[in-house]
């Protein structure tokens, strides 16, 4: 094997290692070693190991950046599937969302679920400081809102979660309506908000984690592509 070919293999492996992530990771080092072994095996099987033959082999192995992106997605989804950390799961679903519709759905579910959790916990925290502004509000048109009321009877706005049977759901600001609004829970809001917040947190975490686990299995089972077209 000529030094040109050896240099090209070293360069490819260095690019792959760099793309796989900074710092030392035993797993990433193992993958690079294995890919190197694979390339060497392939090039040694060639009757005449030329730079052109090597280029063809490297194309078949794949672009280091694409391989590394796939590795990072796998790694973060694997970690998220065994974690209860909302931050990790949010990062994992964000990365997954770039890969397809199911990822977008999971990410959206997570944002809405944790958004609702935040509204419940914030309401419980703010209630002692703004007792007449934070609550469960019955607004006109049978709209039920949980959150912070702007205190106006005309151009009423409520910041939080609003539902209007049968299908309307708003997370954020309920569009201006004309009062009156009526508070339903009083001091009971704090335990109710904490309970709802915990329920929302656990339900969202459980749901998204199951989606990630399911997706992880599907990806492995279906991760076949037409390598012939790359070769």
């Amino acid at each position: 094997m000529t030094s040109d070919i050896t240099d090209a293999i070293n360069q490819y492996c260095a690019r792959l290692r760099k793309a796989l992530g900074k710092g030392s990771s035993h797993e990433a080092d193992e993958i690079v070693l294995e890919v190197r072994s694979h390339i060497l095996e392939r090039i040694e099987a060639e009757e005449t190991p030329t730079p052109e033959a090597l280029a063809k082999i490297l194309r078949a192995v794949g672009d280091p950046k694409e391989l590394a992106a796939e590795y990072r997605t796998q790694t973060i989804l694997h970690r998220a599937s065994r974690s209860t950390s909302p931050w990790l799961m949010l990062r994992a679903t964000l990365r997954w969302a770039r890969k397809g519709t199911l990822g977008v759905i999971a990410f959206f579910t997570m944002v809405v679920g944790y958004g609702c959790t935040a509204v419940f916990f914030l309401s419980a925290m703010l209630k002692p400081f703004f007792p007449s502004r934070v609550g469960l509000w019955l607004a006109p048109e049978h709209t039920l809102s949980f959150g912070f009321w702007n205190g106006r009877l005309s151009a009423t706005e409520i910041y939080g979660i609003s539902v209007r049977p049968p299908v309307s759901f708003v997370l954020g600001t309920l569009s201006p309506t004309n009062g009156p609004v009526r508070e339903l829970l009083g001091p009971w809001l704090i335990p109710v908000a904490i309970l709802c917040g915990l329920l929302c947190l656990f339900a969202t975490t459980f749901l998204v984690r199951s989606l990630i686990r399911r997706f992880g299995r599907q990806r492995r089972d279906l991760q076949f592509s037409h390598s012939a077209s790359l070769a």
Binding site: E30, V61, S225
Partner: peptide
């Protein structure tokens, strides 16, 4: 088996995850 052909580099990522 043509329909099961796999991108070569991807194989090692899958094996790595199966090991995990």
């Amino acid at each position: 088996t043509a329909s099961l052909a796999l991108a070569e580099g991807t194989l090692y990522l899958i094996l790595n995850r199966l090991k995990g």
